[in-house]
């Protein structure tokens, strides 16, 4: 930390001599700058397609020769018969996921923090990371084996809950619970480290005053992680529309597809599936722009209630 301050130097003016002296730094960074421009900024330029009619035939044309259609692609996307349900699904899954996920991670961290046997705590934590490192394809493969009609859960309990075969928002809950199962241990890491940062003296003082362990959890640990929780919660609201297509596609099946469709998947189906690049780009752009707006609002809110801004 001390080093950082010392390093603050007066900025040198641009000169060829300076460039020559920093030639190795240039050589070590310019290729990556070219990479980032090609793979990250050219796709941004691709947003122009959202305002044009772009189908495979007209893609080869330069931008200025394609037919300019204004906001027609957006209008067509918003009036698509799938769009309303897709928006409801995206927001529903997202909000449900944020709340169930956050609550589960906090409860998990809170309880794990109370375990006094170090070895057992360590082991539990290691096991809890396991599903995080496993791909969605594998998770889906396992989930379908367990939850499908006639799967292990049905044979275990003797009732068919139709978890993967009910065309209703029940599917959102199933997806969110699978997600919690996969990520709860991983998400708890940040809360556990926040808990480790709480001054132990406060606990000692509370004990002297005769506070029970529940009281200590409620009045010391929870307020101690509140700033972390609030910031994470607000930032995740900022990415509310970014429900990944991969998870939805892998976990769903023909029966529940109506309630599994989310924006990114919709963009894929309309854009690549039916070869209408203009509409696909428009949907993606809508998602991205709303995401940025939400991020700024969330950041403002975080600043207003006195928490650290993340951006």
């Amino acid at each position: 930390m001390k080093q950082k301050k010392k390093q603050k130097e007066t900025k040198q003016p641009f000169s060829l001599d300076l460039m020559w002296r920093q030639r190795y730094l240039l050589l070590m960074s310019v290729p990556f700058v070219i990479w980032v421009i090609i793979f990250k900024y050219i796709p941004l330029w691709g947003w122009t397609m959202a305002f044009q009619e772009v189908i495979p035939k007209s893609f080869a044309l330069p931008v200025w020769e394609r037919k300019f259609v204004g906001f027609q692609n957006f209008a067509q996307a918003f009036t698509d018969r799938l769009f309303a349900q897709t928006m409801i699904n995206t927001i529903g899954i997202s909000i449900l996921g944020i709340f169930i996920g956050t609550a589960a991670a906090i409860i998990f961290a809170l309880l794990l923090n109370e375990i006094r046997m170090k070895k057992f705590k360590q082991f539990t934590q290691t096991v809890s990371y396991l599903p995080h490192f496993v791909s969605w394809v594998i998770i889906a493969s396992i989930a379908k084996m367990l939850l499908n009609d006639g799967g292990a859960i049905e044979t275990m309990f003797g009732v068919n809950l139709h978890l993967m075969s009910t065309n209703s928002p029940l599917f959102w809950i199933v997806v969110c619970l699978i997600n919690v199962w996969k990520e709860v241990g991983w998400d708890a890491i940040i809360y556990l480290s926040a808990m480790a940062g709480i001054d132990q003296g406060i606990y000692e003082a509370a004990k002297v005053d005769g506070a029970s362990r529940f009281q200590q959890m409620w009045h010391i640990t929870l307020p101690g992680i509140k700033p972390t929780a609030v910031v994470l919660l607000i930032m995740s609201v900022g990415s509310a529309l970014n429900v990944g297509m991969e998870r939805q596609m892998l976990l769903s099946n023909g029966i529940v597809q109506d309630h599994a469709m989310v924006l990114s998947w919709f963009a894929y189906i309309r854009g690549i599936g039916s070869n209408n690049y203009g509409i696909g780009t428009a949907i993606g752009m809508f998602q991205s722009v709303v995401g940025i707006i939400l991020l700024f609002i969330a950041n403002k809110v975080a600043g207003m209630i006195g928490e650290n801004k993340l951006v």
Partner: peptide, 28 residues
């Protein structure tokens, strides 16, 4: 002390928040 430190850093950080999306990347 690298002359382009600031602009290059910003160039990369922006991409963490804004992306062109699936279709333009696919076409590229």
């Amino acid at each position: 002390d690298f002359y382009f430190n600031k602009p290059f850093t910003i160039l990369f950080i922006i991409t963490m928040y804004v992306s062109g999306g699936m279709i333009p990347e696919y076409l590229l």
